[in-house]
Computed example of a mutant assay.
Amino acid sequence: MQNLPLTPSDFEFIDDTLMKHGDDHSVLNPSELDGYFTALVSSPAQVDIAQWFPAIWGGQNPDWESPEEGKQFIDLCVRHINTLATQLALDPTAFKARLEQTEHQGQVLTLAEEWCFGYLRGVAVAQWPALPAAEAAQFEAISFCAEQDNFELPDDLDVALHKQRVAAIEAAAVALHDYWAAQRSA
């Protein structure tokens, strides 16, 4: 049960819970949570739930309506983080960042800002040390997209460049996971 991938209804529960209990300092949606967890499972050292769970909420746990609500949310988080850890460690080709989509000037565009922002939140919680140049370039591919304002895409957006940058994110996440995994086993 702890390794089963989440279903669409599981992600809907997560989304509803984040909206209900979150604020401006919290993880906002499942995409940001996915990026956050990806960074945590890719970290140079394991991060304890007592550290990463309150960080979802900006540092303070929510006031749950019931113990069952809190338990269900935590269980789903643990299942998702376990799924990501398994994918990245054993089958990185199965890893797919949970990115959002929008329409821009008549075409569907994939947005990465929220996912990347979550990834940066995970890096901060895990307190990653400085990276060597090659890995720092991979990290830059993610951090650059976290700085983009996808809420209002500019009319003159370079769509080809945007797609290229978004396409680089999953490979960068896998490369960073692999780098830290090699460091942990060395």
Rank of each mutant, 00 (worst) to 15 (best):
L76H: 13
G106K: 09
T110M: 15
A85L: 10
A50H: 10
P8T: 09
S42P: 05
D63E: 10
Q107C: 06
L84C: 01
L109W: 05
L84W: 12
T83R: 02
Q60C: 00
L28C: 07
S43K: 00
E12L: 11
G22D: 00
D75V: 08
E103R: 12
G106V: 13
G22S: 00
G59C: 14
Q101H: 13
E114C: 03
P30V: 05
W57L: 08
K20Q: 07
V41D: 01
F11R: 03
V47N: 04
Y119D: 02
D91K: 15
A85S: 13
T86P: 12
N82E: 07
D24F: 02
Q46R: 11
E113M: 11
W128G: 11
A45T: 13
D10K: 07
W128Y: 15
E68L: 08
E32S: 03
Q72I: 10
R121N: 12
W52S: 06
W115Q: 10
V108L: 14
G22P: 04
W52A: 06
D16F: 05
E114Q: 09
I14W: 02
A39Q: 11
E12S: 14
P8R: 06
S42F: 02
D15T: 03
A89S: 15
I56Y: 04
L33G: 10
F73R: 04
R98D: 07
D63L: 12
F11A: 04
H21L: 11
S9F: 05
V123Q: 04
S66Y: 00
E12I: 00
A133E: 15
C116F: 10
W128C: 13
L84H: 10
A124F: 07
E114I: 00
L99E: 01
V78R: 04
F95D: 07
F11T: 05
T102G: 07
G70S: 01
G70E: 00
A39S: 15
I81L: 07
Q46L: 14
P129L: 05
A130L: 14
L84A: 06
G22A: 02
D75S: 11
E68A: 09
L40C: 08
Q46D: 13
Y119S: 08
S9Q: 11
G22Y: 02
A130E: 15
G70M: 00
